[in-house]
Design a protein around this nucleic acid. Structure first.
Lengths: 335, 335
DNA sequence: TTTAGCACTTCCATTATATGACTGCTAAAT
DNA sequence: ATTTAGCAGTCATATAATGGAAGTGCTAAA
């Protein structure tokens, strides 16, 4: 259990280090706590024993450890009131009613990335738990046909199909009708299976060149099921602005994670509230922190995350995310 | 005009510098050219006078100047035959006939980025010169409606519309029918105008809540017109692997360009053949080169570009791009 | 024309040195 | 029992000095 003064010291160090990125000395603290630097030093020794603080070398000031950041976030951090300017900017996004939910969220995080200089990402839940609404084709010029897969939640995947000369659009139409008759309403992750045993045997008999047509739809379905595009990632290069990433090796590590979609996907989570993951808890890299939240608006789900250095303005970021979360999606209900 | 020997020296320096990233000394050259280092030095002075070579400091070896690279690319470079392995990997992409043109190109450049460690980008021509094929709606659960704009070349833009309680799907249907009747076939960049003077006045009379509905379509049209998503950008972080970018400031410059979509869009061009832009010619940064080509397969147009340091393996990259260009899009014709 | 040889320039890694910033500890003060 | 002043000790950082190493430019001879 920490004393009041110990907590104040820890709070001071965390907040000051977040601002300056430089180790904090006992002298910097004593003014605001009204005691001498020696007293602070004694307390710092204790905080270091608890592994809440660290030193770079023998005679350096202290910096917060991962545990120290966590203690700060959980016990010491106070919500930071947002500036009027930031609120105003966000409000103009929320009140634009031609934006649908996805666009609203995207615009919001783009703004957040810009004003905070952190990296932001939205991970839509994808279409994996959607059901097939319908399949459709639109014949275009020549032998080109636009094929579309539409889900009940409004996802659309399209693909161009180039018909060989000896196959008519009618054959594709037959396939589409069959799919619409047999598999509409099926959850996407069960579609492949259902196609194989209920559709394939039939079109094998009635449709010429069924292989190509069937495969096209089969592929469109698997693509929409693992839909990757549902990751909106903004402000990656903001990391370059942070002094702790002035070393190219560190940047390399972070960026290679950023380029790995699977790695980014793991950011998604389904938990209540705003959650803060510091360093190794972030699962991305020991050097970054992630603040994220899950949303579910009328069945459209996803995760919004803000990624920054461990030395991140947690109070500000949490407030921003909280504000965004409580404002998205409410709009079309009220009017 | 350069003598034969001078050209050989320039070629040697460019190729060796591309490999090693270190300035090339006269001693390194004399073995392969069968003369003494002093002779080489005399020639190097001449090449430097012509601004084909540069020095970092008085007693450093020579490195190619921008002009030197250009001379190399235009006069000295020999096409590099591709390895069987690279060809094989590309062939498996080309021969997968469930991939449509866009997917084929994307997969190809992903592979190129991986094997060369450069950055690659495909810029589709977007939908700006397309014409409206049709507009469609699919009512989903509750008051949610999926709206789709489809163009004659197979572009699809969709958007969810949340209907206020007092507006029925019928009203949207009326709007859609009207748009389909009046503006189908119009080039996208003229659509806004046509909507304003031919559709808006009519729905103003017959459709309730026409403002919201009209605006949704209006927005969908402007989005598809400036479609941004048509940029597929791979391997940005490969730049971090290049020794000349071990300085964070340089990385910052490049990456801020990479994050600026408008900047990336300018890479698009409509020229024959494979074109090489070195340094300042690249319009991206003095520190990078761009090798790009334009494609037009049955009206689907775009640009494929490979971005790397000036010290780029031009011969290899040009061969790769050439191979890709001559293989994409041919497939569905032949079978 | 080419080459050998040498003086010269610049970079780079190493070492030495001084300085400044802090801490830890001890002993005195409260 | 706390708190504080003071001082010795430790480490980083900046600067300068030093001695190669690498490689050129020039000159004079081949």
């Amino acid at each position: 259990m920490l004393s009041n003064r110990q907590e104040n010291i820890l709070k001071f160090i965390v907040e000051e280090y977040i601002k300056s990125a430089k180790p904090i000395s006992s002298h910097q603290i004593c003014d605001s706590l009204d005691c001498s630097s020696a007293t602070i030093r004694n307390e710092m020794v204790y905080l270091e024993e608890l592994k809440l603080l660290e030193k770079n070398h023998f005679a350096s000031g202290r910096i917060p450890s991962e545990k120290g950041y966590k203690y700060y976030v959980e016990n010491l951090m106070q919500p930071k009131h947002m500036t009027g300017e930031d609120m105003l900017k966000l409000q103009t996004i929320f009140h634009n009613n031609t934006l649908d939910l996805n666009d609203t969220i995207k615009k919001s995080i783009e703004l957040v990335s810009e004003i905070t200089n952190y990296t932001t990402v939205v991970l839509g839940n994808g279409a994996k738990d959607n059901r097939l609404k319908k399949v459709e084709i639109v014949p275009l010029e020549d032998n080109k046909i636009l094929t579309m897969v539409i889900t009940d939640k409004g996802f659309v995947e399209h693909k161009n199909l180039y018909l060989p000369k000896n196959v008519s659009t009618e054959e594709v139409k037959k396939t589409v009708d069959l799919i619409n008759k047999l598999v509409v309403g099926t959850p996407l992750d069960e579609i492949s299976e259902k196609l194989e045993y209920s559709v394939k045997p039939i079109i094998g008999k009635y449709v010429r060149q069924h292989e190509l047509i069937y495969n096209t739809f089969y592929d469109a379905f698997s693509e929409i099921t693992n839909k990757e595009n549902d990751v909106h990632f903004v402000g990656r290069s903001n990391f370059l602005k942070q002094p702790e990433f002035s070393d190219v090796e560190k940047i390399k590590e972070i960026f290679s994670k950023f380029e790995d979609v699977n790695c980014i996907r793991e950011i998604a989570e389904d938990k209540n509230g705003i959650n803060v993951y510091v360093g190794s808890d972030s699962e991305l890299s020991d050097e970054v922190s992630v603040v994220k939240t899950h949303y579910n608006i009328d069945g459209e789900e996803g995760t919004i995350a803000i990624i920054g250095p461990k030395r991140m303005e947690y109070d500000r970021v949490v407030s921003l995310l909280d504000y965004i979360k409580s404002n998205i999606g409410g709009d079309h209900e009220e009017e």
